[in-house]
Structure formats: structure tokens, C-alpha cells
């Protein structure tokens, strides 16, 4: 660390603070926990205290390193190279796509939201050809839908439940 630059990495500082705060939350949560008397020699608190305490010490140590100029090397990207400055537009688009998917999947169904998600992510990461991307998005989604619902017998929502008349309440006949 002899050649560490004087400049402190701000993002790194924020992230380390986040880790530190997490450890504090763990410790506080553990100390507020009500322990029943029947727990024997080691209850659920001990391990949580160890983990919280370890993280508290390590993140405090890391904080010192960061303040002294330590900087993490961003991880490499397989099909390209990492940038120094963040690219907020594509990132925002991906987050939007994920949030839209989570919010609307049960309303509009997988066959609509699947292609939308694929299209938006592809667009964000740099596909130029819209029509081709749209076609691929639909084909891949249909393949995934068939694979999961028919092949693996798992449930994916078709959506549009609101169009159906509310089903009559069938009384559970009791078990």
C-alpha cells in the first residue's frame, strides 16, 4: 500500500459503509431477539453475534484501508472490457425491464412480459437491429414457456385473469 494514491474512492467508501451498516443491523437485531428459555446452551443468538461481530471488525478494517487509498479492481467482462465511468442509460433500461416484468407478469402473462423483458435487455446492452431482436425475443420466450410448462410441468402465468368473470366461490368441503 506504499504507492496508494491520496484520492479516496468515493463509491468504494459508500459500499464499505453499507457493509459496516449491515453488520450493525445484524448486531442490533440479534440483541433485540427474544430468546426462549428452552434453548439449551447455545441459542440462535450466539452464531448471529459471531457473524455480526466478524463483519463489524472486517468492515471497519476495510474502511481504514479505503480511507488510506485502497481501491478495488473492477471485475473483467468476458466479451468486452469494463469502463471507468458508469453508463446510466442502459443500466436504467435493464432495471426498468426487470421491474416491469416483476410488476406485470401476473397481469399480462409470461407470453407478453417474456418478450418485453428480452427485448429491453437486448436493446440496453447494444442490439441495433430491432426487428430481428423482436423476433428472437418472441421465439425464445415461446420456447422457454413450452419448455417450462410442458417439459417441466411448472406453472407460468398466462395473465389476463381480470378478463374472466370472477369464479363462483366453491366451498372447501373440509378435509
Amino acid at each position: 500500500m506504499a504507492l496508494a494514491s491520496k484520492q479516496i474512492a468515493k463509491g468504494e467508501l459508500v459500499f464499505t459503509s453499507f457493509l459496516f451498516a449491515t453488520s450493525v443491523v445484524v448486531l442490533v437485531d440479534t440483541s433485540n431477539m427474544v430468546e426462549s428459555n428452552a434453548v439449551g446452551f447455545v441459542g440462535p443468538k450466539v452464531f448471529a453475534y459471531i457473524v455480526g461481530g466478524l463483519m463489524f471488525a472486517l468492515s471497519a478494517l476495510q474502511m481504514i484501508f479505503v480511507l488510506r487509498g485502497a481501491k478495488g479492481e473492477p471485475e473483467g467482462i468476458e466479451a468486452g472490457s469494463p469502463l471507468e465511468k458508469p453508463n446510466w442509460r442502459p443500466f436504467g433500461l435493464v432495471v426498468l425491464a426487470l421491474a416491469l416484468y416483476a410488476a406485470l407478469i401476473e397481469i399480462l402473462g409470461f407470453l407478453i412480459m417474456g418478450p418485453v423483458l428480452y427485448f429491453l435487455v437486448g436493446k440496453a446492452i447494444g442490439v441495433k437491429r430491432n426487428v430481428l431482436l423482436a423476433i428472437v425475443a418472441v421465439v425464445v420466450s415461446i420456447a422457454v414457456f413450452i419448455g417450462f410448462t410442458q417439459g417441466l410441468q411448472l406453472y407460468l402465468p398466462l395473465g389476463f385473469d381480470f378478463l374472466q368473470p370472477p369464479s363462483e366461490n366453491i366451498e372447501d368441503g373440509g378435509w
Partner: peptide, 20 residues
């Protein structure tokens, strides 16, 4: 195969996996 097409598929698969 261009990488962006792959990323779309990865995300789709991941979220389907989480949902099911």
C-alpha cells in the same frame, strides 16, 4: 452469436427460475 442476445436469454431464464 452476439453477446447481447445471450444476456437477454440469461435474464429471462433467471427470472423464470425465480418465479417458478
Amino acid at each position: 452469436i452476439p453477446a447481447p442476445y445471450l444476456y437477454g436469454g440469461i435474464v429471462l431464464f433467471a427470472l423464470v427460475g425465480a418465479y417458478v
